[in-house]
């Protein structure tokens, strides 16, 4: 049986999809976002944070065993299990086995991904995933490259692919002042989302938050953002105004 490199399983997870969920955090990511709040999950091997190891090889069986313990909570709240990371799609074989097993229990599955992967992987998973939580970090490729280290071409292409396959999507847009935030750019992002709106069940616009900062120090990683990354009041207002122009189900959460 396959094993996955997992940092933790978070239960009573309420920010990663509908209802009460368990979120399985898979380690390893092929992006390197400036604002990443889980920098300890970027490496593809075990690392250390606060003297504790992050990342352990865990078998499909053990993951499934743990998450089905909360099945009653999922059923009552219309929740389920979310695979997040890092980039969960990079451990797709393991992921597929987990999901298939969970489907035997009719558990709702969400995948939280940046979609910077080969389409084949997505294809493989398509039939089993109920909800795709997709990050769209910038529509402007230069910004995307500058802030995440990769181009958004593949990502946008994959989103379109998902759209063609008529899946359910929640799209998340993070806004970081001075880095990826620009009202015009946001407009373009939202226009793009609107163009695929029949698949988009929800859009979350998230103001930058500083929750991950302390981890950088501990990991001896340079943190390039400052306080200025927070949106100003004026910017928050303009975002709120902009949102009103769309019929999409947009939720805006201010940063802290």
């Amino acid at each position: 049986m396959k094993k996955g490199l997992i940092s933790k399983v978070q239960r009573y997870s309420i920010n990663d999809g509908p209802g009460i969920r368990s979120t399985v955090f898979l380690k390893g990511c092929n992006l390197n976002c400036m604002w990443c709040s889980n920098p300890e999950l970027i490496d593809f091997s075990q690392s250390y944070l606060d003297g504790k190891p992050v990342g352990e090889l865990i078998s499909v069986k053990d993951v499934v065993k743990e998450v089905i313990r909360d099945i009653d909570f999922y059923k009552e709240s219309l929740g389920g299990v979310t695979f997040s990371g890092g980039e969960p799609l990079l451990q797709s074989d393991f992921l597929l086995e987990c999901i298939k097993l969970l489907k035997d229990y009719s558990i709702h599955i969400a995948i939280d991904t940046a979609l910077y992967v080969d389409k084949k992987i997505i294809k493989k998973l398509l039939p089993y995933v109920d909800l795709w939580l997709v990050d769209l970090k910038s529509i402007d490729d230069i910004t995307h490259i500058k802030t995440t280290n990769v181009s958004n071409k593949i990502i946008l292409d994959n989103i379109k692919f998902l759209y063609k396959n008529n899946v359910n999507m929640w799209i998340r847009c993070i806004l970081v002042n001075k880095e990826n935030y620009d009202l015009d750019e946001l407009k373009k992002r939202l226009n793009f989302i609107e163009s695929i709106k029949k698949c988009v069940k929800r859009v979350d616009i998230l103001g930058y938050h500083q929750l991950g900062v302390s981890k950088y120090q501990k990991l001896n990683k340079e943190y390039l953002l400052t306080n200025e990354a927070l949106l100003s009041d004026i910017q928050e207002k303009e975002v709120e105004e902009l949102i009103k122009e769309y019929v999409l189900p947009i939720y805006f959460e201010r940063g802290i």
């Binding site: 009573y12 309420i14 209802g19 009460i20 009653d72 909570f73 009552e76 709240s77 929740g79």
Partner: peptide, 12 residues
Amino acid sequence: DKFISFLRVSAK
């Protein structure tokens, strides 16, 4: 809403 579900399952 999620918290209410949580309470209901706790009761169950």
